[in-house]
Every structure is written in C-alpha cells, then in structure tokens.
Simulated assay, not measured.
Amino acid sequence: MDQKTDLSDAYENGAYIPDAAGYPPRWASEAQAYRQRLSPAQKAVLGLPYGEEARHRMDLFLPDRTPEGLVVFVHGGYWQRFDKSDWSHFAEGARARGWAVAIPSYDLCPSVRIRDITAQIVQAVTIAAEEVQGPIRLTGHSAGGHLVARMGTGVLPEDVAARVKAILPISPLSDLRPLMETAMNANLKLDAEEARTESPIFHSAPRAKVTVWVGGAERPAFLEQAEWLEEAWGCARVVDEGKHHFDVIDSLADPSGALTERLLSM
C-alpha cells in the first residue's frame, strides 16, 4: 500500500474515543441482561435461523402487544467483528413503542466478502419479514449502516422492498472506495468493481424515506461519508452534536430517544 494514500488513520475510530476499549464489554453485558429480562416473558426469540450457516441467525424481540411492524437493526464492526448478541438492548427503544425488532448476525470478513454479507442481510430481512407483518423500518450502525443502505438499492425481493418505509443508516460507509487504501483491506479484499457495486452512493435513492445520522464528534471521514450519501440520494442528514462513533447509537435503546423518534416517525 502506497504510504501517500494510506487512509487507515482516517477510518480509525477507537484511537480517538476516550475509553474506547470499554465499550464492547459494556455493550455485551447490557445486551445479555436485556435478553435475560425479556426471555421469561417469551418476548425474546433467540437464534432464529435465516440460512444454513452457524452465524445465519437472528434474535427477534417482541413488543407487549401485536407489533406495529418490524424494525431490523444491523450491527457494525467494519464487517469483521461482533455478532447479534452484543447489541440486544438497542432493540428496546422501538420494542417499547410497539415494534418487533430483529437483530441478525452475519459471516465476517475475511471468511467472506462484503458482497456476501449484503446477500446474507437480504435473506435475514426477508425471513424476518415473514415472521412479522406490517411496515418495515431498517437501521444499522457503521458497517451496518452501509448494509441497511444497500437494502434500499434494489436487492430485496419486491414484496419485501414494498414494505420498507424508512431506512436510517447511522454513521454509515456509503462509498467503499477509500477503504481500499486502508490496512483493513487485507481482510475486506475490496477491489474497484466490488467497492463501486457495494457503495450505496452509486445506486438510485430508495423509495423509502431515508435519514442518514452521524455524530458531530466523529472522525472527518465519517462526516464526509454521511454527507456523500445525503448528496447522492437527496435525503435528510442529521449531525448529532457531541456524539462520537461509539455513543452515537445510544438513543436507540431509549423509547423517547432521538434515534428512536426519527426511526419511527419517518
């Protein structure tokens, strides 16, 4: 990799966030406690399969009444880290407002390519849509923001796509071409063709309403990525002042949180 074009630092988040290492264990602990709270009331359907492989599973969190519809949250981690069990508690904002919330795992790079993960999320959304009737709202964080944006680019079955009313990518990667100039591409294995195909900005805007959300204290590269998606799709963009890449998702866990409000009101 040419040192002059090395963008690794531009897309590095943890080094610029205080106590960055503390976030993943806190997420995992809060997620586990959340599942333990909902499971006795049979409001947590855990490990629902959407495919044949071990990670082709999702957790479905059910509201206390007939669901208003389905929310799907797709986690981030640069397509290389985490699984569904780290994020369960972020379902609570929408669940408490009467929505079922599905959180899928997916295979990770380098064992698969990003295009394979896109196909897996298509399958996860499709199976979740069979489980829950009504409108569908998609949200995801970072790499998950990329993946839910991709769901709006003609990859979903038509009957499922017609039910998608809102897409809320949070701190998404909307143009993957810069990632070819980072050290992580040793795992992502992006080439020019895949980077362009998998970049939401090179696809037409979805029929669904879209808001791209980004923290005001994020790395400049992520602020740019959000702006590029706004420009490409003519969609709304919210800059959440003071929030960095790890705490920008916090309000999804709050029924009256800003992200929950936007997701359910679009």
Rank of each mutant, 00 (worst) to 15 (best):
D59C: 07
Q225S: 07
A183P: 05
V212D: 05
R55S: 14
R115N: 12
R95F: 08
A96C: 07
R262K: 02
S88V: 01
L263P: 06
A253V: 02
D159K: 02
M1D: 08
R262G: 04
Q225K: 14
E181F: 15
S204F: 12
H146M: 06
R137Y: 08
L252K: 03
P104N: 00
R65E: 13
A91Y: 11
T153M: 03
V155T: 07
E198N: 08
A20R: 01
T5L: 15
C109R: 04
P110T: 11
R113W: 01
G77P: 05
V45P: 01
N185H: 12
Y106S: 03
H245K: 10
I117R: 00
R55F: 10
V210M: 02
G22V: 12
L62F: 05
R196T: 15
N187F: 14
D159M: 00
Q36D: 14
A102Y: 02
Y16K: 15
I114N: 01
A217E: 04
A253H: 04
Q80I: 10
N187P: 03
H203P: 03
S265A: 14
I121E: 13
L179A: 09
L7A: 08
F202E: 05
D6Q: 02
A54H: 01
E158T: 10
R57Q: 15
Q32S: 14
V71F: 09
D64C: 11
K43F: 13
V122T: 15
A44D: 13
L190Y: 13
E53T: 14
V214W: 04
G145L: 07
G93L: 09
A119G: 10
P200N: 08
A232Y: 12
T126M: 04
G22Y: 08
V160C: 09
N185G: 13
S39N: 12
L70S: 01
G257H: 00
T118K: 06
V132P: 05
D83P: 10
W99T: 02
F61T: 04
P67I: 06
I201Q: 07
K209T: 14
Q133K: 11
G140S: 06
Q80G: 00
R35L: 10
V71E: 05
W87G: 03
L188S: 01
L147R: 02
K189W: 09
S29G: 11
V148D: 10
A96G: 09
Q3I: 12
A91C: 06
L264D: 13
G76F: 04
D254Q: 12
V148C: 08
Q36T: 13
A192T: 06
R207E: 15
Y11E: 09
P220L: 05
G69W: 05
L62R: 07
R81S: 15
G76K: 02
E218F: 02
S199E: 05
L147Q: 00
S199L: 12
D83A: 11
L173S: 01
P110F: 10
Q133Y: 00
G134Y: 03
G47W: 04
F246P: 04
A195Q: 10
D6W: 06
D116F: 00
Q3L: 12
Q133S: 15
G144C: 13
L179H: 05
E198G: 00
D86S: 09
F82R: 12
V74C: 09
G77A: 03
D191S: 04
D107M: 06
